[in-house]
Structure formats: C-alpha cells, structure tokens
C-alpha cells in the first residue's frame, strides 16, 4: 500500500509538471476570435430578424423564421466543409450560436450516414445536439412548473 501511495504522490508531482510545461493558450487572442466569429454570426442573425420582422405578422413568427434561416445557414456551411474551419478559428464563437447547434446535427448526419441511413445517420444525428434538447426540455419544464406554481399561489 505504501508503494501505491508513493506512486500516487509521484504522479501528482508529474501532473503538476505537465501543467507547468503545457503550452499556454493565448486567452486574449482566443477570446477576441470567439468575439469576432460569434458577433458576426449574431449580426447576420440581426439582419435576418429585421427582414422577417417586416415580412411576418408577429414577433414570434419572425423569431421562428430567423432561427430556421440560421439553422439552414449552419447546415449549408457544414455541407460545404466550411464550418469546421470556422470552429478551428473562432472556437466557441462558432459553437455557441444556433448555427453551431445546426453544425453538430449536420456533421453527425454526414459522418454517420456512412453506416447507413437508419442505424447510422438516423440513430446518431443527435449525438451532440441530443443532450442540448434533453437538458433544455428538463430545465424548461421545471422552470415553467415553478413559474406556474408561483402564479397560482400569487393568484
């Protein structure tokens, strides 16, 4: 057992060394790139939103049409092989906007289609996007429950 503990202590020291020698990411540069890419995607979204605000009867429909258009944009850029490059450059600036969400679905669909349409593409399309929907629905339902109870109590 002593030997085990010695080994673990030795490892702790090594893990510190690993941290110490690891190349440091350039936080300012990475954040600036994420800002640029994420901001640009939101800017495009704003143009689309303004367009649909003029053409759609309600704000809700304008938002829905905007999200659908941005998802289409994300899928098209993925199919063209551009979105992964955008992610390499912009990091979470490409991942966080709804276009990145679309990219997770499209990239998985394209990749796993090679195992067939049902067991591949169909089964694995939501490999990365699935958890977003799962936890989004759980959080939305619970939040809605609290809000509903609060409104019931306060009458």
């Amino acid at each position: 057992m002593d030997r085990d503990r010695d080994a673990i202590d030795g490892h702790k020291e090594y893990q510190r060394l690993v941290k110490q020698l690891a190349p440091k990411p350039n936080a300012a540069k990475e954040a600036a790139r994420a800002f640029l890419v994420g901001g640009t995607l939101c800017l495009i979204g704003q143009f689309v939103l303004d367009f649909f605000r003029r053409t759609q009867p309600t704000e809700g429909e304008a938002i829905a049409a905007t999200l659908a258009t941005m998802i289409l944009l994300g899928v098209v850029l993925t199919a063209l092989g551009v979105y992964d490059t955008l992610g390499e450059f912009g990091g979470l600036g490409a991942a966080v906007p709804i276009t990145g969400f679309a990219n997770t679905i499209a990239s998985a669909a394209m990749d796993f289609r090679r195992e067939g349409y049902v067991v591949g593409m169909g089964a694995k399309m939501f490999l990365i996007a699935g958890p977003v929907i799962v936890f989004g629905i759980i959080a939305g339902t619970l939040t809605g429950l609290v809000a509903w109870l609060v409104s019931a109590v306060s009458g």
Partner: peptide
C-alpha cells in the same frame, strides 16, 4: 447584436480556457 453576441461567445471561450 454584434457586441452582445460576441461577448457571450468570448465569455464562454474564457471559461473554456
């Protein structure tokens, strides 16, 4: 839109680092 969207992404990136 550009500033707020960019800030959300940049904040996420800093947390990721």
């Amino acid at each position: 839109a550009f500033a707020v969207g960019g800030l959300i992404c940049a904040a996420a990136q800093l947390i990721a680092i």
